[in-house]
Design a protein around this nucleic acid. Structure first.
Lengths: 197, 197
DNA sequence: ATTATTTGATACCAATCGGTATCTTTGCAT
DNA sequence: ATGCAAAGATACCGATTGGTATCAAATAAT
């Protein structure tokens, strides 16, 4: 890796941690220069402005999470295990997060939902990708006769995502993973009882 | 009402809207002076500093929401309707919010969850009160033989709150209430099937 | 009506914000 | 080794931040 690429990825890495913990607006350029040991000159060499850095940081987070998620989904052979590994990714996230600061999607959504910022579009795209991933699992499960044909795949995605995101909020606020664990357990029971054949 | 009390409540009211939409950190004193038509001198006469204004604004929001919620719960005569009116309060919140900007608890939680700010404690207290409200409904439902004795009231609260908060996030991001409606419908089915006798 | 007190406006403060122009240094190709 | 382009450091910019000291106006008490 070229030295300039090392610099860029170091900026990105530190910015990711800061944005996801402190928030995007609350993180200043000097926070990033302090964390990286670099100067503003170096940062603005690689990023047009702070907003572009925010966007690249968010996209970088989501890509790495989805890459891992898709790999794990593909590694499972049946619908049950595919859905379960989505739940387990969230459950493990509290103790072993990809990025400290909680779920990047939840963080960005609540910060920008009343704005017209580009980040809101990116968050919306991310949510759509996430929903589609779950819906696809359910649809494929139907064709493989593993999922009840009357199940609404959109509902499955909505229920799973909303419960998990809300549980992340609760667990983060209480510094405890008992809530996310309870929600995951409950979702597993529901999937076995009402979704799978 | 004394004229100074009118001023204070006007500041509080405008601050509430700004904090809940733009965010607490992102809202500046000049945002508030612009919204109220008052000056900083007037604001700092009634509030020690910005942090105290933030705290009073958040508490004010939560008190008015919980007052309404407790009244509605009390007005219902059975467990089913008591639980349902909690769900319906959230469902209506997207179209007819008490305060624009989404759920104050979700907003504050995601903004301060990685800090040690006083607001985090206030959010934590709010979550505890909310959980207790739901748990109490379920416990009373057991004594009235309306709720299955094996039901875990803590789980009911966790599942309801996490789903609703997550659904608020999704609906706000997508500018659509279809997700919160789907979640509420799903929770109602679950309550009837698995919680009530 | 005349004080005394409360309330709100004005003007200011140092610190920090995102951003840029300029200069020096580094790394790479020849 | 030399020359050149890319990368990073330094120093600055105007605007805005939360906060305060001071003064004028409005209200309340006598």
């Amino acid at each position: 890796m070229k030295s300039s690429e090392i610099t860029k990825s170091k900026v990105l890495q530190e910015a990711i941690t800061l944005f996801n913990t402190k928030g995007y607006r609350a993180t200043s350029l000097s926070d990033i220069t302090n964390a990286t040991g670099l100067t503003k000159g170096a940062i603005y060499r690689h990023f047009e402005n702070k907003e572009q850095l925010e966007i690249e940081a968010f996209q970088n987070m989501m890509h790495s999470i989805f890459n891992t998620l898709q790999k794990r989904i593909k590694a499972e052979s049946n619908t049950r295990d595919k859905l379960f590994c989505v739940l387990e990714l969230f459950q493990d996230y509290i103790n072993n997060p990809f990025f400290s600061g909680g779920c990047p999607l939840l963080n960005v959504s609540t910060e920008v939902d009343d704005t017209t910022m580009v980040l809101k579009d990116k968050a919306l795209q991310t949510l759509t990708v996430f929903r589609n991933s779950i819906e696809t699992i359910v649809i494929n499960g139907k064709t493989h006769k593993e999922v009840n044909a009357i199940v609404n795949e959109k509902l499955v995605a909505i229920v799973m995502i909303s419960s998990l995101e809300g549980a992340i909020m609760m667990s983060k606020l209480q510094d405890s993973n008992s809530d996310i664990e309870a929600v995951v357990k409950h979702l597993k029971n529901w999937i076995v009882a009402d979704v799978l054949l």
